[in-house]
Amino acid sequence: MSLLSKFRTLVHRYVVQPSMMFLYRRVYGMDIGREVRISMGARIDKTNPKGVHIGDFTAITSGAAILTHDFVNRLHTDVYIGRNCFIGYGAIVLPGVRIGDSVIVTGNSVVGRDVPSNSIVMGNPARVVESNITTGPWGIRLDKGNIVPIRH
């Protein structure tokens, strides 16, 4: 790893990420757990920011959208995302959805209904394609031989 790459990683870890979490938690009032990783390219709804609830050790990737309001129906409802989840690139979580613990939402999925814990969902609309999975921090699958990642 080059020196520039190491520097960029350190700046992101100790400056950018804490600043984003401060903004989400303190300024917008979102309920975000410990060690949550939210990509800078993720779109978290700020129309109803107090309706965002994200559990510990969850990862939300770039292009993902977490919505807590429906302008057309004048609806403002909370969205709950559990612990140890992974929300893939371009996935959309619609208002009022509850995602259980240890859930993987694959890229470009549209989640419009509640998702049970320990499952993988994919598609539009998102449907459960696998159940009884085990994930660790940030939605990394542990039942496929992976080990728990080292926390920095």
Rank of each mutant, 00 (worst) to 15 (best):
Ser2Ile: 01
Leu4Ser: 04
Lys6Pro: 00
Phe7Val: 14
Arg8Phe: 02
Thr9Ser: 14
Thr9Gln: 13
Val11Gln: 08
Val11Asp: 02
Val11Leu: 15
Arg13Val: 12
Arg13Ile: 10
Tyr14Ser: 09
Met20Thr: 00
Met21Leu: 14
Leu23Gly: 01
Tyr24Trp: 14
Arg25Val: 10
Arg25Ala: 11
Arg26Ala: 14
Gly33Met: 07
Gly33Pro: 11
Val36Trp: 01
Ile38Met: 01
Ile38Lys: 00
Ile38Cys: 01
Ser39Lys: 09
Ala42Asn: 07
Ile44Lys: 00
Ile44His: 01
Asp45Ser: 00
Asp45Met: 01
Lys46Trp: 10
Thr47Asn: 12
Asn48Glu: 03
Val52Tyr: 01
Val52Met: 04
Val52Thr: 12
Ile54Arg: 06
Ile54Tyr: 02
Gly55Ile: 06
Gly55Tyr: 09
Gly55Ser: 04
Thr58Glu: 03
Thr58Met: 03
Thr58Gln: 02
Thr61Tyr: 04
Ser62Gln: 10
Ser62Val: 02
Gly63Ala: 11
Ala65Tyr: 08
His69Glu: 08
Asp70Glu: 09
Phe71Val: 13
Val72Lys: 13
Asn73Ile: 03
Arg74Trp: 03
Asp78Ser: 14
Asp78Tyr: 04
Tyr80Lys: 13
Tyr80Gln: 11
Ile81His: 01
Arg83Met: 11
Gly88Pro: 08
Gly90Val: 03
Gly90Ala: 10
Val93His: 05
Pro95Ile: 12
Ile99Gln: 05
Ser102Phe: 02
Val103Cys: 07
Ile104Arg: 13
Asn108Pro: 03
Val110Cys: 06
Val110Ile: 15
Val111Arg: 08
Gly112Lys: 15
Gly112Trp: 07
Val115Trp: 02
